[in-house]
């Protein structure tokens, strides 16, 4: 379905959703940075900037409780989290590079083990994405096969129009349901002119060729050159819309406490540190190699797609200037040799 939505009506739509008790999450400024956060009023929404963290936390929170335990005398009580209590949510203003990562996460969290926490949140969420009209030189969505108006992952996609307002296109049943439920706010599209889309400078990678090189070069001295500078923080993985590693830990005392699931990153030394003291990835380049391998080989082997949407967050935020697009360029060059 294809409709038109004025800016005022977008505000009215969000207002109506919030009033109806739906949790509306969109880019909002928090202590100086833009994050996908629950909106209290629609005017908190900021749409002209890529949020600092990706939208994955709407389904895969930075940290969440899995269960609580309490011991009284010999009596141990366990309390599960009831995923049915997760609220109905509408995500708004999601960048296409963030939205496209959601199916990537879906594949992992519904693979051999069905992650209830992720899937329940996912089932209760409708995603309104926003076509992207500005890119910088860290953006490379087109290079990994996506586009600034990529609808993948979106239930409803808004495209900003030249004369203000948006074109709204549904891409799923959830999107259609949202259009129908608020039909009064949408109008039939006239002869509209969309704003020019963003133009990332890096236009394409031959991902097949890159994968073929990775298939053959687990051991290769160029990894040292690429990643000696890596200092081993989790910045790249945590701002990535598609990285999904987590750790589980029990916190509390012997009397009471909680089991929690929280973000982890393959760049950390501790990530593969065994209880025996042995660490198979004992050297930072090995850890960085895993990052590249997982994104462009292992995930592809398993699910037939790439674990990167070209949002460029890791490029902008790496403390030591490691540029994943630059690394891919280098690998492609080697593959062509």
């Amino acid at each position: 379905m294809r409709k038109q939505l004025s800016s005022e009506h977008l505000t009215a739509l969000l207002q109506a959703l919030i009033a109806a008790g739906t949790r509306v999450v969109g880019p909002r400024r928090v202590a100086g940075i833009l994050l996908y956060e629950p909106l209290i009023t629609p005017d908190e929404l900021v749409l002209d900037e890529l949020p600092r963290r990706s939208v994955k936390e709407a389904f895969f929170p930075v940290c969440e409780d899995l269960l609580a335990y309490e011991k009284q005398g010999q009596q141990l009580t366990l309390q599960d989290v009831d995923p049915a209590s997760f609220p109905q949510t509408v995500l708004v203003g999601v960048r296409p590079c963030d939205a496209a990562a959601i199916p990537v996460l879906d594949a992992v969290f519904s693979w051999d083990y069905k992650d209830q926490f992720f899937l329940e949140r996912r089932a209760r969420t409708t995603i309104i994405s926003l076509a992207c009209t500005s890119a910088d030189d860290a953006c490379f969505c087109t290079a990994v096969g996506l586009a600034p108006d990529e609808p993948r992952g979106a239930d409803l996609m808004l495209t900003p129009l030249e004369d203000g307002g948006y074109l709204a296109e549904s891409h799923s049943e959830k999107g259609e349901a949202l259009l129908e439920a608020h039909a009064g706010l949408f109008s039939e599209p006239g002869a509209v002119q969309p704003l020019p889309l963003a133009q990332p400078q890096t236009l394409s990678f031959d991902l097949k060729k890159i994968k073929a090189w990775l298939d053959e070069h687990f051991e290769d001295e160029s990894w040292d050159g690429i990643a000696t500078r890596c200092v081993g923080c989790g910045s790249c993985a945590f701002v990535c819309p598609a990285c999904h590693c987590f750790d589980i830990v029990d916190e509390g005392s012997e009397k009471s406490g909680k089991r929690r699931k929280f973000w982890d990153a393959c760049g950390f030394w501790k990530f593969t540190h065994h209880a025996s003291g042995h660490n198979p990835r004992d050297f930072q380049p090995k850890r960085y190699r895993n990052r590249i391998m997982h994104k462009f080989k292992y995930y592809d082997d398993k699910f037939g797609q790439t674990l990167c949407t070209g949002c460029g967050r890791c490029v902008r935020l790496c403390p030591v200037g490691i540029d994943i697009a630059g690394v891919l360029e280098e690998i492609e060059k080697k593959a062509n040799e």
Partner: peptide, 9 residues
């Protein structure tokens, strides 16, 4: 809790 952003709603 750090539960998908702040507990505001």
């Amino acid at each position: 809790e750090q539960w998908s952003g702040s507990l505001t709603t």
